[in-house]
Design a protein around this nucleic acid. Sequence first.
RNA 1: GCCGGAGUGGCGGAAUAGGCAGACGCGGCGGACUUAAAAUCCGCUGGCCGCAAGGCCGUGUGGGUUCGAUUCCCGCCUUCGGCACCA
Length: 825
Amino acid sequence: MRERYNPQEIEPKWQARWADAKLYHVTESSHKPHFYSLVMFPYPSGDLHMGHMRNYAIGDLVARYKTMQGFNVLNPMGWDAFGLPAENAAIKVGVHPAINTYKNISRMKEQFYKMGICYDWDREVTSCDPSYYKWTQWLFALFYKMGLAYKKKAPANWCPSCATVLANEQVVDGACERCGTTVTKKDLEQWFFRITAYADRLLKDLDLLGGWPERVRTMQRNWIGRSEGCEAEFGIEGSDERIRVFTTRPDTLYGVTFMVLAPEHPLVEKLTTPDHRVEVKAYAEQARRQSEVERLSAELDKTGVFTGSYAINLLNGKKVPIWVADYVLMGYGTGAVMGVPAHDERDHAFAHKYGIPIITVIEPKPDDAQGKERLAASEHPDLYIDPGVMVNSGTFTGTGNIEGKQAICDYLEQKGFGAKTVVYRLRDWLISRQRYWGAPIPIVYCDKCGTQLVPDDQLPVLLPPNVDFRPTGESPLTRVPEFVNTTCPQCGGPARRETDTMDTFVCSSWYYFRYADPHNSEEPFSKDKVDYWEPVDQYTGGVEHAILHLMYSRFFTKVLYDAGLVPNVEPFTRLFTQGMIYKDGAKMSKSKGNVVPVDDMVGSHGADTARLFILFVSPPEMDAEWSDQGVEGSYRFLGRVWRMIDERVHVDASAPIDSESLDEEDRDLLRMVHKTIRRVTDDIERFHLNTGVSAIMELTNAMTAYVEAHGVTPVFNEAAENLLLLLAPFAPHIAEELWHTAGGQDSVHKQSWPAYSESLAAEEQVTIVLQVNGKVKDRLTVPVDISEEEAKKLALENNRVKSSLDGRQVRRIVYVPQRLINVVI
RNA sequence: GCCGGAGUGGCGGAAUAGGCAGACGCGGCGGACUUAAAAUCCGCUGGCCGCAAGGCCGUGUGGGUUCGAUUCCCGCCUUCGGCACCA
């Protein structure tokens, strides 16, 4: 026997050969069915650790497995290369972001290489490369032409630390999603994508995504936040103007005792009477200054001020005071709310605090004793939120409130006071960023012609190389005159360029299309190629993108579909979100100093051990704790495989095994092989990769025992061949090495995934459990085809069963074929 | 508060359709090999009682359905994630 298992020797050898052979290079001219496996492309931060690697190990396994299954597999990789870290580093050490970015990219490629993660590098895309962002800009222009990109002045989320505005999705608990700094409000003119125009389709098409985790679909559903209701108009005393409110409870319209406007509501100024002006103005200004965190902390204590004006309820002519309060949000519905303190918790709290009357208009139904009891016992007997019957409601009195909703809506529509509407929580996507390292927004402002798109033939709008990056709240590009000053594409006169750049999530919303046709210089991608590859069959990445990247990408795909550029309405047929790797109880991260660097792992135990461990440690969708001892276990296992197979086995497909002539041990091993193939195949399909590994381990254990007793036989060779094929996607180097020492031809990764035979996997004998009153008493090994009568007879003759019966009368015998017999007494 | 997931040995976890709870691995204990150790190999390893045969308990918790429940139903506890003044 030669050397012991030495990954440092065999791994680099195969990595080089795979790269030379372009193992995973694909084209569209194949007779095989195609399969697109994609892992979320990373930000090139420079160092990959084992926490990152889980993602790529899973993706690599899928690609290798699907290739062996006979698919033409697209398995690309690229770089989400624009973004703040590179720019912040540039500010700190004065190195241009491009230099750092490309340096990091080459480091990370090296690390993928060392881990044996193979991509079709001919399709690499880099989002900060002009050949890529040219098309990001082209897509912006397309959105603009479709009316889906617009500029407006609005209070935007501002991160003082990043010195830029953020989209709603990028604010988490009132803080910047990137750096955790508390976000403030800033009034700025900003570019938006009209994602709200797609709200209904983004919501409805979630039903098409059966291959997505339910969790992610729920999160998106919550984020979109559809609610049905109606808009109702109120009159204003002494004015012809109307106030529109949105409500989901038109059935409570008779219970309105006040009206509330958001502090930013345009009517506030008009409605404030002179004697209330000072107070209202101060309140509105304070509300504007408050950060989201401050507002959330004051959640329970509602504040507001009276404007001095009154609204008229058009249903009953009743006059109610108009207040301003910051619990009403300008960005949702109409920015105005009718106050029904008897049937809404918030309105109730507000009315209580300011002594506003409470009028009950819904009661528990007369036969609803439970509801009445609950109400009487409740802390607030003047607050009833559950369904019931309408009272004090004019001609609607006596109507059930559910029917009442519809009836009042119809009435309002008929009178012209309102209409049914649907309102979404989702806001338009703010894409402007006041930073340098991003794709410039291809817009020019001309004094004569106004806002102009940069024509397609002038794209890309290149980032100027020499820039003072210091963040000032304005884009660094404003300080580059040769960038700003340009000519109007319309009239040729002097004009100024837009200096904001695009949110990097714009770049990552379409990269999966570019992989289909990465070198196209005429268009973002050709119709033929996206028709061939899209949609992505299997997408793998972190759940932290459940809303952000995954919703933006769905939006992009729908827009591109509407533009006739792509064939699919959804980008990712199946989504898998893997859990994070923790070490010492915390998420692996450089700043916490608890990372396991790729280089260390490769040097100490090898890439195969690292990959096998990370696939075995826990179900891949769950978070898992790194364990050095677990790594040892995986290493030991690969060592056992090595010693068992190396220079012992000869792969010889030309000697088929005649299963009829085998003895029992041979048949047992062969059965185990076929059962294992079935298990591993099913496990990979279900993403139960950890149990797939354990099935391979069990087969190895059985083979070890067999070969000690019988030596190498044709059946053992057959088992070893299949073991290597099953192992190939999990531990690609050792499988390849042993495949070759065993005399296998070509690459193990180009072999067909083994097929199992149901008849060879079928058991000849089964163990039947004998129970008395549901308690296990004994086990019986019987032929699979034993008859019910025979089995029952054996059960009743069994000594342990008999002693448990103790002569008592058998009431019933439950018989489950091939599983158990339960004697009930 | 609302929505969704999870809770199983000392640890990571398994149990695909209601039918042997604890596969596989780690750790631990015992043994073989060795002058010794490492490496490797073999055996045992949920708890309690018992010399043993064997018995009892056991999948967060309390009920229920069932011949039979980790699995289904109802209540509760803990925990993680999402949403949250969204009218």
